Amino acid sequence: MPEDSPSPSPRPGQLLARGVCRHLLHLGMVTVEELVPRSGLRVDVMALGRSNEIWVIECKSSRADFMSDGKWHNYLEWCDRYFWAVDSEFPTDLLPPESGLIIADAYDAEILRMAPETKLAPARRKVMVQKFARHAALRLQGLRDPGATSF
């Protein structure tokens, strides 16, 4: 994309992710977006706490977006806590009650229901922290040098 071209407008789910990431930063967690824990899965937001606690947050912008997501159960094995992030108009009764619930907009969020904790095995946690670090470093390098290619 030429440098003078305007960047595309963020999609609704990306706006929710931004608000979630801002809120989690205030809680002392760092985040990355669109991390791939394994081939075929891409989480919207992964958060890493000070004690290496890992949260996965899926951002759903509409009922149709939620209904079309059949893979969310596969994310549970990659985190200590799993959340849905939706806007204030979303019909939250659709969301599984055994997961966390975050209400968000583009600027902030609020955790309405804390997700139950299912601790990752130490080996899985190590892999995920390494994936998180690599993903974050590649994103930073891409911002600093957009023409660089990862190997």
Rank of each mutant, 00 (worst) to 15 (best):
F90N: 08
L25D: 15
V129W: 02
Y82T: 04
S9C: 07
P146I: 02
Y82A: 15
V32K: 01
E117W: 03
C21F: 01
P96E: 13
F151D: 11
L35V: 05
R134G: 05
V43R: 00
R81T: 09
I111L: 05
R134H: 01
G19E: 13
W78R: 02
G70F: 12
L48M: 13
G28S: 10
E58F: 04
L24I: 04
A136Q: 11
M1L: 06
R125N: 09
V45S: 11
D69V: 05
P37Q: 09
R22K: 05
S5Q: 09
V127M: 14
R18H: 08
P122I: 07
L16M: 08
H26R: 09
L112V: 09
V32E: 09
D4Q: 11
M67I: 09
S61R: 01
M29K: 03
F66Y: 14
F132L: 02
L120G: 07
I103L: 15
G13A: 13
R22F: 15
L95S: 10
V129N: 01
R11E: 15
V43L: 13
L25Q: 02
E53F: 00
F132T: 00
A115M: 06
C79A: 11
E89S: 14
T118C: 12
S39I: 10
E77N: 10
P8S: 12
N52W: 03
I111A: 05
L143R: 02
R124N: 13
V129A: 03
L112K: 03
I57R: 01
M29F: 15
L120S: 07
K71R: 08
D4E: 13
Q130V: 06
A85L: 07
E117K: 07
I103Y: 07
D4F: 15
R139F: 06
G49H: 06
V129L: 07
E110R: 05
L95E: 07
R38I: 14
R125M: 04
I103C: 06
R124F: 01
S150A: 11
S68I: 03
R50E: 15
P122M: 10
V45Q: 11
E33H: 01
E34Y: 06
